[in-house]
Design a protein around this nucleic acid. Structure first.
Lengths: 217, 217
DNA sequence: CTATATTTTTAGACAAAACTAAAAATGTTT
DNA sequence: AAACATTTTTAGTTTTGTCTAAAAATATAG
């Protein structure tokens, strides 16, 4: 499996979660910053290899085989992110590009040993679950802050958007995984929220709240 | 710089050490398990980029710029080898192929942090020196066991051949970096040696002795 | 239910990196 | 120094992954 094929599988996998329909050519092209025609070509190749199911004009979806491959790439990506943060002192907004490269290293032994070295982490630095060596993903209870009712006490368990600009905003506001958040009030006009984060008052826009995962205390 | 260009630079660098002349197309093709015509093509490209000096039919040599690049690849390769052995419990005969992949990961921060994490090692698991972040290589005193005079006490500090078959042979004979070796006698007929390794007698062929680096105690 | 707009696919081209086969240059022998 | 052998380069293909532009299919709107 080539570097490029792996990237396509990964993108299709990510677009598939919470999307039971076929993934469109355009959606993939957008995500990969490439052109729809390139996607069509590659998708045909992946279909040849039975990694995706594809019918002209109907979009693609991963086969079980393709899903397994994709999950392993995600596993590698997230384990490397943990390594970078825990062992090499990277911050959570710096890990993505490097992990993007490391995820393509081919060695089962490497990834299993790394997993062990990191003490079998179940989540990456952004709160996303790490598939185990059999591809099993422990799913955890979490909801978006924007969809949480007033006067609830929750803790931050993940981010939906992991762009560095969002992560740096969170750093600035001293919001991290594990932070205690209480929802005080919601502004009707723009859905912005008044919070207490670690007992300090903070107001956040709906866009922020819609990208923070929390779970009830 | 592409993956492939990096591999060429690395091979040319390795062929260059202890070889002041131009490196031949054939030598490179051999080392890379490719064809001379492919080498000619790539060498032209590297010459365009001023990474090598090249005159038709005269072989190639690295420019200073090319040497710097090559040294950085070697630095990455060897640091990753240390990581694999020290942190992930790989044995010294298992690290090469994985390090071959890891050496192409592009991130200065990654490699400097890794260096720090490993406590700035100066040698890889085979006793080869690790260039520092400025490309400086601490050279150490070492000689081949085959060229060491009788009745000398030495310690093993490196291997010339790091193929897994050789390394596994050394494991079997319990020869490792740091092992104390005394040269008892040399057979005139085949240049084989009688040794004491960690006080136990052992006879080795010239081929073995010609691939073991030692230094006087 | 046509007409129009959008999406997707096809066809053809290109760049990178490899190859084979043939030509050119260099080396080696006598 | 001519003849032969070897090495290196050139010329032309191939494969992978991308692209543009045009054609085909699907979706949307009046």
């Amino acid at each position: 499996m080539t570097y490029s094929e792996e990237n396509y599988l990964k993108v299709i996998y990510h677009l598939s979660t919470g999307n039971s329909k076929g993934i469109t050519t355009n959606a993939i092209a957008n995500e990969m910053e490439s052109k729809p025609s390139s996607v069509t070509d590659m998708v045909k190749k992946l279909a040849e290899k039975e990694l995706v199911a594809y019918k002209k004009y109907q979009g693609v979806s991963l086969t079980e085989k393709g899903r397994q491959h994709a999950v392993m790439i995600v596993r590698k990506h997230r384990l490397w992110e943990v390594f970078l943060v825990e062992k090499l002192d990277f911050s959570w907004d710096e890990v993505h590009d490097v992990a993007e490269q490391l995820e393509h290293i081919k060695s089962e032994k490497l990834i299993d040993k790394l997993d062990e070295f990191l003490d079998f982490p179940t989540e990456d630095p952004h709160g996303d679950p790490i598939p185990d060596r059999n591809g099993k993903i422990a799913k955890m209870e979490k909801q978006l802050l924007s969809e949480t009712s007033l006067n609830t006490k929750v803790i931050c368990v993940g981010v939906k958007d992991s762009s560095s600009s969002f992560l740096q905003y969170l750093d600035k506001q001293q919001i991290a995984l594990g932070s205690a958040i209480e929802i005080i009030s919601r502004e009707h006009f723009d859905q912005s929220l008044s919070l207490k984060v670690n007992d300090k008052p903070l107001s956040v826009s709906n866009k922020i709240a819609a990208n923070l995962f929390v779970k009830p205390l």
